[in-house]
């Protein structure tokens, strides 16, 4: 995680979601920090279990700046004049991803900058967990980002996949999203999913159990289908 954060922190610009419209008073231009760059994502079918009609892969492929541009950010509401008047570390950050309505927040870091970065990393995980992409299983081939999180023994893996990416690597969320897409497409059957990935059922189960949020997402799906949870 730390790596993406630093990268993002280092190239900060256009990071701020605006939460007030531009105003014109006294003939002066009053501006919010930066304009948001919301792209053409439909907002109409929000709330349908988080899935909606848009592609979660598109969101995760965005740069931090672009993703931030789709978010509204609040810190604590102004409870006074702020600035030089205050020493209270009001550095908590709450990000609302407008196209999906997903909210991520971070309070525990010591600078607002880092809280913003943590909230954004958390948002990526939530997007991976909650936004599903439809798959066509007849022509299914696991995408590279999914192959990269699989153990070396997967028969689908080729040498250009590189070493296995673990849950601490920021790229893991991309693979996790693709894996969840597949598991949803096969209605939660680990053995079916394992076949598409060239793995044994046991090996895929171990991978799922290696990450808490992944395990919980899979088990939530399985319990909704009346299947036993993985343990």
């Amino acid at each position: 995680m730390a790596q993406t954060l630093l990268k993002w922190v280092g190239t900060s610009s256009r990071l701020f979601g605006s939460f007030k419209p531009a105003l014109h008073t006294h003939g002066l231009q009053v501006q919010v920090p930066f304009q948001r760059q919301i792209k053409a994502f439909t907002l109409s079918d929000r709330g349908g279990g988080g899935a909606g009609g848009y592609s979660g892969r598109d969101f995760l492929a965005l740069s931090d700046e672009q993703l931030m541009g789709q978010c509204e950010m609040d810190t604590f509401k102004a409870s006074g004049p702020g600035g030089q008047h205050r020493n209270k570390r009001e550095s908590a950050v709450r990000l609302k991803h407008v196209p999906t309505g997903i909210v991520a927040q971070a309070v525990e870091d010591r600078s607002q900058h880092k809280n913003r970065a943590s909230a954004l990393a958390r948002l990526r995980t939530l997007l991976a967990l909650k936004v599903r992409n439809k798959l066509n299983l007849d022509e299914y081939r696991p995408p590279l980002e999914l192959l990269q999180i699989l153990p070396a023994k997967s028969t689908m893996r080729t040498s250009d996949c590189g070493p296995q990416i673990g849950p601490n690597n920021p790229k893991f969320v991309l693979g996790m999203q693709a894996l969840l897409d597949l598991i949803f497409a096969v209605d939660g059957s680990i053995s079916d999913a394992a076949k598409y990935l060239g793995l044994s059922t046991g090996a895929l189960s171990r991978l799922i159990l290696s990450d808490d949020s992944l395990r919980m997402a899979v088990n939530e799906l399985r319990s909704s289908k009346g299947m036993r949870p993985l343990t």
């Binding site: 231009q29 919010v32 604590f76």
Partner: peptide
């Protein structure tokens, strides 16, 4: 020229 007022994170003109 281009004199602007910019808000802070708490929504205060800063």
């Amino acid at each position: 020229h281009n004199v602007k007022v910019v808000y802070d994170f708490a929504g205060i003109q800063r």
